[in-house]
Structure formats: C-alpha cells, structure tokens
Lab assay of single mutants.
Amino acid sequence: KPRTPFTTSQLLALERKFRQKQYLSIAERAEFSSSLNLTETQVKIWFQNRRAKAKR
C-alpha cells in the first residue's frame, strides 16, 4: 500500500497533538482523524511511528 503523503498542515497538527499527548484514546483518534481528513488507521500508525522516533 502506498505511503500517505501528509500535507504540511496535517503534519503540524499531528506534531502539536503529539506534544500535548503521546497516546490518543479511540474517541480522540476518531475525532482528530476526521478533523484532518485522514483515516483513523493513518493517525494510529503516525502516532506509533512518532513514538518509536521519540524513543531513538
């Protein structure tokens, strides 16, 4: 499956949310993903990858 090209504004929103909170609840993820026009899976995986990056 092809890589999702996130827009700059989506990335800024994702990073801002990640700084507030590294783990989103299912409800938060649902609301946040629809506000960004992304799927919940895209947001879930982005947060997983971002947490992995933060550990490195």
Score class of each variant (00 low, 15 high):
residue 2 P to M: 08
residue 2 P to W: 01
residue 2 P to Y: 07
residue 3 R to E: 15
residue 3 R to Q: 14
residue 3 R to N: 15
residue 3 R to V: 15
residue 3 R to I: 15
residue 4 T to I: 13
residue 5 P to Y: 12
residue 5 P to I: 12
residue 5 P to D: 10
residue 6 F to S: 01
residue 6 F to G: 04
residue 7 T to G: 04
residue 7 T to E: 02
residue 7 T to N: 06
residue 7 T to F: 02
residue 7 T to D: 07
residue 8 T to Q: 05
residue 8 T to Y: 04
residue 8 T to I: 07
residue 9 S to M: 15
residue 10 Q to D: 12
residue 10 Q to T: 08
residue 10 Q to C: 11
residue 12 L to M: 15
residue 12 L to K: 14
residue 13 A to M: 08
residue 13 A to K: 04
residue 14 L to P: 00
residue 15 E to I: 00
residue 15 E to K: 05
residue 16 R to D: 13
residue 16 R to W: 11
residue 17 K to Y: 06
residue 17 K to H: 05
residue 18 F to H: 03
residue 18 F to N: 03
residue 18 F to E: 05
residue 19 R to I: 09
residue 19 R to V: 13
residue 19 R to E: 14
residue 21 K to D: 09
residue 21 K to E: 13
residue 21 K to V: 13
residue 23 Y to V: 11
residue 23 Y to F: 15
residue 24 L to P: 05
residue 25 S to C: 05
residue 25 S to G: 08
residue 25 S to E: 11
residue 26 I to Q: 08
residue 26 I to C: 12
residue 27 A to Q: 11
residue 27 A to P: 11
residue 27 A to E: 15
residue 30 A to E: 12
residue 30 A to T: 11
residue 31 E to L: 07
residue 31 E to T: 07
residue 32 F to Y: 01
residue 32 F to M: 13
residue 32 F to Q: 08
residue 33 S to E: 01
residue 33 S to L: 00
residue 34 S to P: 11
residue 34 S to G: 10
residue 34 S to E: 13
residue 35 S to I: 14
residue 37 N to V: 03
residue 38 L to T: 06
residue 38 L to Y: 01
residue 39 T to W: 02
residue 40 E to P: 07
residue 40 E to W: 01
residue 40 E to Y: 03
residue 40 E to I: 01
residue 41 T to N: 14
residue 41 T to E: 15
residue 42 Q to W: 04
residue 42 Q to S: 08
residue 43 V to Q: 02
residue 43 V to S: 02
residue 43 V to K: 00
residue 43 V to T: 02
residue 43 V to M: 01
residue 43 V to D: 00
residue 44 K to W: 09
residue 45 I to P: 00
residue 45 I to L: 13
residue 45 I to K: 06
residue 47 F to R: 03
residue 48 Q to L: 05
residue 48 Q to Y: 08
residue 48 Q to P: 03
residue 48 Q to D: 15
residue 49 N to Q: 13
residue 49 N to E: 14
residue 49 N to L: 06
residue 50 R to D: 03
residue 50 R to G: 02
residue 50 R to P: 00
residue 50 R to E: 13
residue 51 R to T: 04
residue 52 A to N: 05
residue 53 K to S: 12
residue 53 K to D: 14
residue 54 A to K: 06
residue 54 A to T: 14
residue 54 A to G: 09
residue 54 A to D: 08
residue 55 K to D: 15
residue 56 R to L: 11
residue 56 R to H: 12
